[in-house]
């Protein structure tokens, strides 16, 4: 099998890898945020549910969770296909890690911010959405960015259930052409080609925030609006 022949397979597998990444990320960011909000909330039972969940999933290997979902659950009649099982494993595990990052971010916003919001007659939702979350987002950005890259790399574990992503594809190819060194180097390179720009993107965005680029943009927007309504010359 000539090397040109496995490129289409790798391209297809790359798409699967990105699919797992996107689904796993979407799920874990959402579930992680919900868990984090549960943990900073005032109802103790809700807090405990979130804490127990986090500790359980944080301290269980993802590979085992994946086995339970894909090989274990069918024995009690719950069957997922590989795409769902893989994405679900990423979601439930990374939600636990992300919830801790988000919790720290939420708690990093000084309490006076909440109080100021309530004192001007904003609802709890409005306080969180407009005041707490934007600030918590900035505080969690760096750590969250690392997790995003981590999810992409961890999709390779899904090869154990034959997820048809990059590593699975590489295994299939080496089984046919006996060139593991070459194939795994290529696959490693593909992972790197996605992860490295992603890492840099996070760093770039962080630097941008620190430099106040976004602030300058909102200031310019505000000044234009003030001119529009004639509030400034």
């Amino acid at each position: 099998m000539g090397s040109s022949l496995y490129w289409p397979a790798l391209g297809y597998a790359t798409l699967h890898t990105l699919e797992f990444t996107a689904l796993g990320l979407a799920g874990s960011l959402l579930l992680g945020l919900v868990l984090a909000l549960m943990k900073v909330g005032k109802w103790a039972p809700v807090r405990w549910v979130a804490i127990v969940y986090t500790e359980l999933l944080k301290n269980t290997p993802l590979l085992v969770v994946l086995y339970i979902i894909y090989f274990g659950l069918p024995s009690i009649g719950i069957i997922f296909d590989r795409l769902i099982a893989g994405s679900l494993a990423l979601t439930v595990c990374y939600a636990a890690y992300l919830s801790e990052i988000f919790r720290a971010g939420l708690q990093g916003v000084p309490n006076g911010q909440r109080e100021a919001g309530y004192a001007v007659g904003l609802s709890t939702f409005a306080v969180y959405w407009n005041i707490i979350l934007p600030q918590a987002f900035r505080l969690s950005l760096a750590a969250t960015g690392n997790m995003v890259v981590d999810v992409l790399k961890t999709t390779s574990l899904i090869s154990v259930i034959g997820g048809a992503e990059l590593l699975t594809s590489a295994e299939n190819i080496t089984a046919a052409n006996f060139e593991p060194m070459k194939v795994y180097l290529i696959v490693g390179g593909i992972y790197f080609a996605f992860c490295f720009p992603l890492s840099r993107l996070v760093v770039w965005y962080e630097t941008r925030l620190k430099a106040g680029k976004n602030r300058q943009r909102s200031r310019r927007r505000l000044e234009a609006e003030l001119r529009e309504i004639g509030a400034v010359a």
Partner: peptide
């Protein structure tokens, strides 16, 4: 408030 508690992400 004593500490103003302005929202730092807003103008």
């Amino acid at each position: 408030f004593q500490q103003f508690n302005l929202f730092p992400h807003l103008t």
